[in-house]
């Protein structure tokens, strides 16, 4: 089988966020792009599954929706070990549009991994939408996944604890932190090999957008921090009670 991992292209997590003059679009000038951190963990887990189940998992394929600028991110995924990359050549207009594009790609894969959220628009939507478009089972907040014969052992976080599940393929797993220890740093050999691996560019399919980003705003600046002496630390509790009224 082949595992498909959905890869988002997002600004580096230390990026200072700026918008254009009329605040209608993100200003991407000078931004360093990275693999969305949750997707990177999904990719890491997919690589581990492939390595531990050489007979079963024949390859790991990564896919995204984006213009040519996102190829650096895909190439990095190839450098850490993905076998093949797919780029749907379109602007990722909204979650429904992106999921519709990915549905055309993902239908042939029995196991699809997606990160639970994206570090840019934080929509937490693509994985679930894709599952519904494919009419597949999905498990969200997945913190562990492994093969168990022809089935899968999946652990997920629920509100109030965690669960171990037994799931049959096909499945869409929406993963969160804990799924893999740390993302891998590509070895030079991997970087060299990435150049020779296939990166297929597909034309987008017809799809609608249901939402639009009208404008952006920055959070209001915070008032200065009230400093309290270490010896009078207890005063903070009093202030929280009397002044801030949060206790």
């Amino acid at each position: 089988m082949k595992i498909l991992v959905l890869i988002g292209n997002v600004p580096d997590t230390t990026t200072k966020i700026k918008f254009n003059a009329d605040k209608t679009a993100f200003d991407a000038s000078g931004v360093q792009w990275i693999i969305n951190p949750w997707d990177e963990l999904a990719l890491t887990r997919a690589m581990e599954l492939k390595e531990a189940n050489a007979g079963k998992v024949e390859s790991v394929v990564v896919a995204n929706v984006g213009r040519a600028i996102t190829e650096g991110t895909l190439r990095k995924a190839l450098a850490v070990g993905a076998d093949e990359a797919i780029r749907v050549d379109a602007d990722p207009l909204d979650a429904f549009y992106v999921a519709s594009q990915l549905a055309a790609v993902a239908k042939d894969y029995e196991l699809v991994l997606a990160g639970i959220e994206a570090a840019d628009y934080n929509s937490a939507a693509i994985g679930g939408m894709l599952a519904e478009l494919l009419d597949r089972k999905s498990i969200s907040a997945v913190s562990g996944i492994d093969f168990d014969g022809d089935s899968l052992k999946v652990s997920r976080e629920i509100d109030g604890g965690s669960q171990s599940l037994k799931m049959e393929l096909p499945l869409l797993a929406i993963v969160q932190k804990g799924i893999a220890k740390e993302p891998r740093i590509p070895a030079m050999r991997g970087i060299m090999m990435a150049r020779k691996k296939p990166l297929n560019v597909l034309a987008p399919v017809e799809a609608e957008t249901l939402t639009a980003y009208n404008s952006f705003e920055m959070p209001a600046p915070k008032a200065a921090c009230k400093m309290i002496n270490e010896e009078q630390a207890g005063d903070v509790i009093r202030l929280l009670h009397e002044e801030a009224k949060v206790l």
């Binding site: 650096g72 190439r75 990095k76 740390e182 740093i185 590509p186 970087i191 990435a194």
Partner: peptide
């Protein structure tokens, strides 16, 4: 080149992490 930048990033990741 893209590869040179990837190596730079790999070294940075290893150093900073």
């Amino acid at each position: 080149t893209e590869e040179q930048l990837m190596i730079q990033q790999a070294a940075r990741d290893y150093a900073q992490r």
